[in-house]
Design a protein around this nucleic acid. Structure first.
Lengths: 228, 228
DNA sequence: GCTGTTGTCGTACTTTGTACGATCGCTGGG
DNA sequence: CCCAGCGATCGTACAAAGTACGACAACAGC
């Protein structure tokens, strides 16, 4: 019987590898968050012992680096068959979906200064798309910084909301409203009551609105640049 | 001689207080970063012992919450004498300056779910400004989410660059370029060489460009809404 | 079967957050 | 003037977490 995994637990006995470590770390972080993610818990998750992990990654920071790079790998590259605006739009929607799925990833981007291969490939593709659209290098740099700021910032705010979501956003809002000093902040209170607490409130619905504002504005800049 | 601080070290002997703890923590984080910030180092910074700190704050998380709120307090509120667009613009510039000064703060926003007084006051003032500008509650909510996403995202990216700045951004860029696989990513390489490495490169110069794209777009939305 | 190599793991040390209880200094009532 | 009481300070100690070190096991090829 030629099965190659002959052990009890499903994913347990095939030999540990760097990929399986990252895979397990990402899955665990998705479930319990990044701060409670410890080497010991990760070892349990992988059906192994803490020190075994260190034969496949240098240290915990390397795991975090790898996780961030793996998240980048999940984001669709801008499709080359679309014009630059639609291509960037598509990759931004993908990025938001991915970062929303891994809400621990966005704040992590800060501490990780050494980009991985997937990250580099991704940046390369985005820049190429802007250049292909006729932007100068300087304009592409601005566009790149601007669009990514928006995407990451939105993801960062969504991450906060997702964390709260354990206790159902509306409960949080009500708890905040219940605090006595809220009378000092009438507009914020009204905002919470009349907007956040409305059924069907969806923070994410703002995303495409702002994204299109930016893309339309950038497009106008390109046209202007072309007509010099 | 009626001096009230009669001790050796300048800031040492006036009684410890929650404010002084936060003050010291922020100063220390500015210098060494948020991750290396430990209770013991903070105690040294304050000229006291670790456990003394815990008589003024509940635990380390409370310190982090307080630090974030103190950072919010540093951001100028939108000036009420300006029209909404200029007011929001001014507060965004202030926010970027503050978040850039405290580069540890932006990623921290994620984990902190309980907003402090300064944070609430700030949100209140921003929402009030949007409403004053004639936006509906729904539009104000979108505008709020969009603008803050951009500001926080930009700050997040700047934080990464600032971290790198210890080793002079150009060194980092050169190190990245030196990696062998860079031939795979020609556009990114060209971007680095022809743009980032140019003298006078300033990542921050993109900020106002993108911000104005958003504000102009939001203004158009308001006008459209008004003409219904 | 022997040896070397690769992956696994037990043990233990270090760093960090923080609980517990002792001490110290001041303040107000006798 | 003295002392009970109280708030602030701190010494000690423990638990959780990263990880160095070296032992062991499994499996390769000779």
């Amino acid at each position: 019987m030629p099965t190659d995994t002959t052990d009890t637990v499903d994913s347990a006995r095939r030999p540990l590898t760097r990929e399986r470590v990252l895979e397990g770390a990402i899955g665990l972080a998705d479930r319990i968050g990044i701060q409670p993610l410890t080497i010991r818990k990760l070892a349990d998750e992988l059906g192994t012992k803490p020190m075994t992990i260190y034969h496949h990654v240098e240290n915990k920071d390397a795991i975090l680096d790898g996780m961030v790079d793996a998240v980048f790998a999940e984001i669709d590259l801008p499709p080359s068959e679309l014009d630059w605006k639609q291509a960037i739009r598509a990759r931004c929607l993908s990025a938001r979906a991915v970062l929303s799925r891994h809400s621990w990833a966005t704040p992590l981007m800060e501490s990780r200064t050494t980009p991985g291969r997937a990250t580099l490939r991704h940046h390369d593709a985005v820049i190429a798309t802007f250049l292909r659209g006729g932007m100068s290098m300087a304009t592409a740099a601005h566009a790149y910084a601007i669009v990514d700021s928006y995407v990451y910032g939105f993801a960062l705010q969504e991450a906060t909301l997702v964390t709260d979501a354990e206790m159902e956003l509306t409960d949080v809002a009500e708890a905040i409203l219940a605090s006595p000093e809220m009378e000092e902040f009438p507009d914020f209170a009204a905002f919470t009551v009349h907007h956040v607490l409305q059924p069907g409130y969806d923070f994410g619905s703002s995303f495409e609105i702002g994204l299109d504002l930016l893309l339309d504005g950038l497009e106008a800049m390109v046209d202007e640049q072309a007509s010099d």
